[in-house]
């Protein structure tokens, strides 16, 4: 296989069905370890794609690269038709600078496994921080928006509490409201239920179910909750060794997996639960 050079990638994606997210031959290495190996992945606008796979298969890295928390070694990521990891320059694509990244990052929101709420701010202050200080909304408007979102995630009555007074499930719901308050086009959920006690997982998955049902958000989710993934995903990607081993509609992938590795993984997960 010939190695791609930057000039092989378009400056912008054009056409009738430009995907909201496109990974184009994206490779990520940590030293000698290749975490993602020439990944191609398109996510359409409004689509909910779930990534499953064994640990170390690169699934979280996909989200972290899209959030620009990680740089990439090769390839280009596009968001809403425009390059994310690169920017136009010198008549082609050059690595994105901080200013460009900041502009593009506004399209993406992320929820983390460990919530990462700001502990010195109340729930509503957490939600208002970005809208006021990044988007420049007037405080009153940011407060209204945050209150609506906290209402939606069922946390309106706890809006003046600090995170230390909230359970894990409650913190994660606030974190979802905080990310949504920035009105991203793409939402990323990185193992958002993995750090939760079993009895509160439902309150977080229900919020995500509502998002899927009522909003036309593009979403990428990494999860170990296979039942949840099956219920709400438009498409499920099984990652193995830094590549997509198999992908398809949830009923197909879970009901009739074609590849041996997928079958092994799914039966191992089934046994464990």
């Amino acid at each position: 296989m010939t190695k791609e050079t930057l000039s092989d990638f378009p400056l912008e994606l054009e056409g009738a069905d430009v995907p909201m997210v496109r990974f184009s031959k994206v490779t990520k290495r940590y030293g000698d370890l290749t975490v993602l190996d020439s990944l191609d992945l398109d996510v359409a606008e409004g689509e909910m794609v779930t990534i499953i796979g064994p640990s170390g298969s690169g699934k979280t890295t996909v989200l972290r690269m899209l959030m620009t928390l990680e740089t990439i070694n090769e390839g280009v990521i596009y968001v809403d038709g425009k390059p994310l990891t690169h920017m136009p320059g010198n008549g082609g694509l050059v690595p994105a600078d901080n200013r460009y990244l900041r502009k593009m990052r506004a399209n993406i929101g992320m929820c983390f496994q460990h919530f990462n709420l700001f502990p010195h701010m109340t729930a509503i202050e957490n939600c208002m921080e970005g809208p006021v200080h990044v988007l420049g909304l007037p405080k009153r408007e940011a407060r209204e928006r945050s209150e609506e979102l906290l209402e939606m995630v069922g946390m309106a009555d706890k809006r003046d509490q600090h995170p230390s007074r909230l359970s894990g499930g409650q913190q994660q719901r606030v974190a979802i409201a905080r990310a949504l308050a920035m009105r991203p086009k793409v939402m990323l959920f990185d193992e958002v239920t993995s750090a939760l006690d079993p009895e509160v997982i439902g309150e977080v998955t229900n919020v995500i179910r509502r998002l899927v049902a009522e909003h036309n958000l593009t979403m990428l989710m990494v999860t170990h909750q296979m039942g949840f993934a099956k219920d709400i995903s438009d498409r499920v990607c099984f990652f193995f060794g830094g590549r997509i081993e198999e992908q398809g509609k949830p009923e197909d992938l879970f009901g009739n997996p074609q590849r041996e590795r997928t079958q092994q993984f799914l039966s191992a997960v089934k046994e464990a639960s």
Binding site: M67, T68, L69, R102, R105, A106, I108, G109, M110, F112, H114, F115, N116, L117, F118, E129, G130, H133, V134, R178, A179, M182
Partner: peptide, 15 residues
């Protein structure tokens, strides 16, 4: 300060 606080700040696009 945990690394997650930096990551959340970046994800919110804070300067």
């Amino acid at each position: 300060v945990p690394k997650g606080q930096w990551e959340a700040s970046l994800a919110l696009n804070l300067s």
